[in-house]
Nucleic acid binder design. Structure first.
Length: 600
DNA sequence: ACGCTCGCATCAGGTGGGAAACGG
DNA sequence: CCGTTTCCCACCTGATGCGAGCGT
């Protein structure tokens, strides 16, 4: 079942004979799967750490990212027909414990591989069992190291997650929105990896939207068939490649057509009204993409609970619908006041919003990019005044600025090391954002956040597979967009891993602090603003943003860029480990991100 | 002449809404 | 009857091709 159809297509040109399998093409009953990883510290106490048995990993090797608590209760429901990768490295959001201290970091990078679970171990609640990330360091480069994965558009996922994300599935396949987008660090630069996403049942229930909320309704149909794996089209590729840029799965499509033979490699077959959990798998393979089964521990899996969603054939929750409309550029036609968004008076366009969020100054360089307000709800909570204020779509600075995650400015990247998400025993699957809010500033600021301001001219495709994201990856030609990047822009097409960091640190920090100051509403619930309340303010702010966009050729760095910078930094720093790992301004940057996850 | 940038037009494909169809 | 699924629609984005303009 796992990866059946998809893999064949993806690797058809690289078929390799022999007994070696191609990842993720693996027999469902891979005997090694269940024992691929060893776990340590399993016990009643949730606060312990696991050391995976990733091959070549030296136990003594201090981890760049430390200690992430592991919780025995898994997040992903694993029916009897477990896939080959039951041992999900569950990398929940990093939620430092209450006692989080900048100096409390530990030095062991401990991917917490979760062994296969019985169906009885159901979807565990998202918890904030803490982990201090203060001593976060950039990943070391070398064989056997564990990967660290960052969910690039996590804030957006969180917005949806608050209302229980829904994903449309159709016969011909529907893209996910938000889509999965990651940054990976800690890979061996020269080793080859397959990167793919597997979508597994998150719990054993059938769901129904009733009375304005999702309720369980019977048991899930475990007999699902069809492809559950989407292999990144760039697979296989080197660690350097994967770490060089954001890894987007925007082309991944969800379908309920089990019999489809069309584009099966792009399709993940799901069942409506079932809850799913995407997993990211990174499998070390040979150069031709063949997984070498002779060595264990070359598979690492990452799970972000906020990526969970319920597959539907029609949206059930209007909040989700509104979020989709507001965020997805392809749904722009359904936005209210769209026509008026560009009709605001000149002065309105140039005048910062009264409530000027920290993004007020995020004037975007590259006015050429007459982009639409994609960042409008970077923080939907700022609605209505700020909702569309900083709706610049084009921020030609990083590889993801035009991507939806770009709008999620400050906390855009979510670093996940080998951590097992904790479970707190609650029954909700929603991420608890309350502590997130509360600790937003308290944990973030005190620790001397210094983000790296890596300026790039990455342009801004809404999707991560934007020109700059993909150009180096060879995903089709996007010259038409690439060339639009003005050479006069002060940043380079590819983020320099070194230049410009120090001098921008303060600037970035200041911006982050501004974010923090305005964070009260940042994380507030979307429901605070009814969809129907998309007021005229929206149009005004929209217009303002658009105007600003047009006129701001050389504005200051945007938060979006900062976020991407961080993201890029992490990856590029990993590539250029020598000079920055130690100083690790990026570490602090990452720590800052971590800080968004806090415990009450 | 050549290469590059830029603007414009075209087209494929993605989007949610809504009505119709389907099925228990 | 009611919940779910399918299909079509209008609207939009993004990719691409082409030609004009510019600098070397």
């Amino acid at each position: 079942m796992l990866g059946g159809e998809g893999e064949s297509t993806s690797f058809s040109s690289k078929e390799a004979a022999g007994d070696r399998r191609k990842s993720p093409a693996v027999e469902a009953e891979d005997p090694a799967a269940g024992s691929r990883y060893t776990e340590h510290g399993m016990g009643a106490d949730r606060s312990y750490y696991l050391h995976s048995t990733v091959s070549k990993q030296s136990p003594e090797t201090p981890s760049p990212c430390s200690f992430i608590p592991y919780t025995p209760c898994g997040t992903v429901y694993t029916p009897s027909s477990a896939t080959r990768y039951p041992s999900s490295l569950h990398l929940g959001s990093v939620l430092p414990p209450a006692g989080f201290s900048p100096s409390s970091g530990r030095s062991h990078f401990s991917p917490a591989y979760q062994l296969g679970q019985s169906p009885g171990c159901l979807y565990p609640p998202y918890t904030s069992s803490g982990s201090a990330l203060s001593n976060l360091n950039l990943p070391t480069i070398g064989p056997g190291m564990r990967a660290q994965v960052y969910l690039c558009n996590r804030p957006m996922w969180l917005k949806f997650h608050r209302h229980q994300t829904e994903m449309i599935i159709t016969k011909q396949g529907r893209r996910m929105f938000p889509f999965l987008s990651f940054n990976i660090a800690g890979l061996n630069l020269t080793a080859h990896y397959n990167v793919f996403v597997e979508v597994v049942l998150a719990d054993p229930n059938h769901w129904r939207f009733q009375g304005g909320k999702w309720v369980t309704c019977g048991k899930a149909d475990n007999s699902s068939q069809g492809n559950k794996v989407y292999i990144h089209p760039e697979s296989p590729n080197t660690g350097a490649h994967w770490m060089r840029q954001e890894i987007s799965f925007s082309k991944l499509k969800l379908t309920n057509n089990k019999g489809t033979n069309i584009n099966t490699s792009q399709m993940v077959v799901l069942q409506s009204l079932h809850k799913y959990q995407p997993r990211l798998h990174i499998v070390e393979v040979t150069e031709d993409g063949v997984e070498d089964i002779s060595s264990e521990g070359k598979t690492q899996s990452f799970t972000f609970p906020e990526n969970q969603f319920i597959a539907v054939t029609a949206y059930q929750n209007t909040d989700i619908t509104q979020l989709k409309i507001d965020h997805n550029p392809f749904a722009k036609g359904f936005r209210d006041n769209y026509d008026s968004m560009y009709a605001a008076p000149e002065n309105d366009r140039l005048t910062p919003s009264p409530t000027s969020s920290p993004r007020a100054h995020q004037i975007v360089p590259g006015a050429r990019y007459a982009m639409q307000p994609l960042f409008q709800d970077q923080f939907v909570n700022n609605l209505p005044q700020n909702r569309y204020y900083n709706s610049e779509r084009a921020v030609p600075q990083t590889n993801s600025l035009l991507s939806p995650q770009a709008e999620d400015a400050t906390s855009q990247r979510w670093f996940v090391t080998s951590m097992q998400q904790g479970g707190n025993g609650t029954s909700t699957n929603k991420l608890d954002l309350t502590p997130y809010d509360g600790e937003y500033s308290s944990s973030l600021l005190p620790y001397g956040i210094k983000s790296l301001s890596m300026q790039t001219s990455h342009a801004l495709s809404y999707y991560p597979d934007s020109p700059f994201t993909t150009m180096s990856a060879g995903w089709g030609s996007r010259a038409a967009y690439q060339r639009k990047v003005s050479p006069s822009l002060p940043w380079s097409p590819r983020p320099s891993t070194t230049t410009g960091f120090p001098e921008d640190l303060d600037k970035v920090k200041a911006q982050i602090e501004e974010e923090v100051n305005g964070s009260a509403s940042l994380i507030s619930s979307w429901t605070e603003t009814q969809p129907s309340a998309l007021s005229l303010d929206k149009a005004d702010s929209y217009s303002t943003a658009c105007k600003r966009r047009r006129l701001s050729l050389n504005g200051p760095i945007t938060e979006d860029s900062i976020s991407d910078i961080k993201c890029e930094d992490l990856a590029s720093a990993a590539i250029n480990s020598s000079s920055y790992i130690k100083d690790a301004p990026s570490s602090k940057c990452m720590a800052a991100y971590y800080s968004f996850y806090t415990n009450p």
